[in-house]
Nucleic acid binder design. Structure first.
Lengths: 106, 106
DNA sequence: TATATATTTAACTAATACGTTAATTGGTTA
DNA sequence: TAACCAATTAACGTATTAGTTAAATATATA
């Protein structure tokens, strides 16, 4: 099941960090690898898992492979699950969500 | 970091199912175990991981140990991360979230 | 006390995930 | 073609995870 795969994929700090980097702009595999201490093959593997989960898309342009975030898939899964668990809660307002992000990042 | 642990903990279908069961009401370890095909010790282990991640709380009452969902922790983490990745998107309206939940459950 | 029930802990096995380095593939350019 | 750069795949070691059964702990009750 795809939700299984998405949560499995999100259970990795480097992969979540990759998604955060991609939230601002598309990046090549090399761009991404240069932001981490680990080897390029390791990052390539992470990218391929993110791709398999549908969380990113990739496109080769010349020598380079550009990766882009698939926001819809990510947001659908997370909000969908949160709603399944917690159907009573209303949607968080912008400020509350910012706060949650802050809390969550510590 | 606690977000690490929470995502790690959510990367397990049985654990997510436990959370879904607990969303409706508190349940004993035995109640929960009876809903799964696996052994009671296995469920106990899942519960202890959920507890360690702060996603549930437990209370012994006589022979039984009751587990309750910690909604705040779950919702904060998921929305917080979604917002970090996707700060531009507005909060989903109730119907959209229902839809996302439906999509996410297939 | 003795016995039964609920739950957890211990010991163990099998499968999976993550990182490394070396080799390979795809594309560019001298 | 040769040399080079980007990225992926292959092969491999290590660590972690998820499940099993057996044993231990906690509480209730005859």
């Amino acid at each position: 099941m795809t939700v299984d795969r998405i949560f499995e994929t999100l259970a990795s700090r480097p992969r979540r960090e990759i998604l955060a980097y991609l939230s601002a702009q598309e990046l090549t595999a090399g761009d991404i690898a240069s932001r981490f201490a680990m080897s390029a093959p390791a990052i390539s593997r992470h990218l391929s898992l993110l791709d398999a989960a549908g969380l990113v898309t990739s496109e080769r342009r010349g020598q380079f492979v550009f990766y882009r975030l698939n926001k819809e898939s990510l947001v659908n899964t997370l909000t969908g699950f949160a709603f399944e668990i917690c159907p009573t809660a209303g949607p968080l307002k912008r400020e509350s969500r910012k706060l949650a992000a802050k809390k969550a990042s510590t």
